[in-house]
Design a protein around this nucleic acid. Sequence first.
DNA 1: ATTCGATTCTAGCATTGCTAGACAATAGAG
DNA 2: CTCTATTGTCTAGCAATGCTAGAATCGAAT
Lengths: 192, 192
Amino acid sequence: MSVQERKERERAARERLILATARELAEQQGWDAVTTRRLAERIEYSQPVLYSHFRGKREIIGAVALEGATEMAAALRAATSAAGGPRTRVTALARAYLDFAARNPAVYDAMFQLDGGLAFANEDTPEPLKDAFAALLESLGEVAGDGVHPGLFTEVFWAALHGLATLTRAGRLPPQDTERRTELLVDRLAIL
Amino acid sequence: MSVQERKERERAARERLILATARELAEQQGWDAVTTRRLAERIEYSQPVLYSHFRGKREIIGAVALEGATEMAAALRAATSAAGGPRTRVTALARAYLDFAARNPAVYDAMFQLDGGLAFANEDTPEPLKDAFAALLESLGEVAGDGVHPGLFTEVFWAALHGLATLTRAGRLPPQDTERRTELLVDRLAIL
DNA sequence: ATTCGATTCTAGCATTGCTAGACAATAGAG
DNA sequence: CTCTATTGTCTAGCAATGCTAGAATCGAAT
């Protein structure tokens, strides 16, 4: 059975290669530049190989989105674990979120702007996405305030961060005031 | 000179027809369904005619976005003018914004999600967009709180609304709690 | 009625996502 | 070591997309 195992390892390695290449290409030139032909050429296989791993381009985007969700959850937890009190923690969380979005625009797009064919806000939601939301909830639940449902509060805070991230990235908001906007958001929304 | 005038009138009418058709098609089946061929067929002209009015699909999206900005500004002002105090006014504003986004998803996409080739946050920004932001500022400036720049506050509030609108529309947030989220947002962000 | 300029259309290009069917490599049996 | 059957990969192609060149047609002014 060792032959089978080797093949599966190689197949898994190639799948990782596809995803890493797609992500790299998307970060370099945007998702529009991630065509099946270019992607195939970069991994040095023909296009149909892509379709033996993923149903199509959408599913590739979805896979990158899941990778990103895992990383984002880790980044958020790393940022908040170093903080002392609730206030520093929430500020660190907000900064880490916006920083992740700014540093990985293509991955952020895959997660929240593009159609990756992923389910959201129901029981079919993939684990990494639920976990990323959980990472937000861990720090935000404690500053929701009395009588306010932590989940609802987290949704609102998240939406605000998402709005800041996307509008800034699209050039709708001047980038230089990001820090001041973040502070204002935390000051007002969080009950400390 | 009457011939020239008639021709210009007809040309302007056709341009309105193109935009109305594009918008209708986008609202019915999404912007992906707005192909130059389908659009040309619906207006009963050939595709190249579209390019005598607009540089390309992007510019059509941009034109729809500007139309939408004008309408949104009007909708926001209509909603806030009926309100008595600052609190009712801000709540009405938030509701009107989210309502506009929910009722005109394709137009909202054209304004904020798609690339319509429009400038933002600088002096080249088209008038309708600046005016829509001004409509937000009119009601939000008075609840920014002492020592907080009204423009910055408006940006943050707007970003939060934008996040709620897009995440809800993309199925990332359950729609039924929209009203509670709106109330929470207003309660926390606005200084009354 | 004819000419000439503007307008509109036909036909086509290159690119996209995706797939069918031909071809090649390889594992396992003899 | 050879043959076969399965598994994997590639070549070639489809329909759809945005956009454009050049032909054809229309209409206003002479």
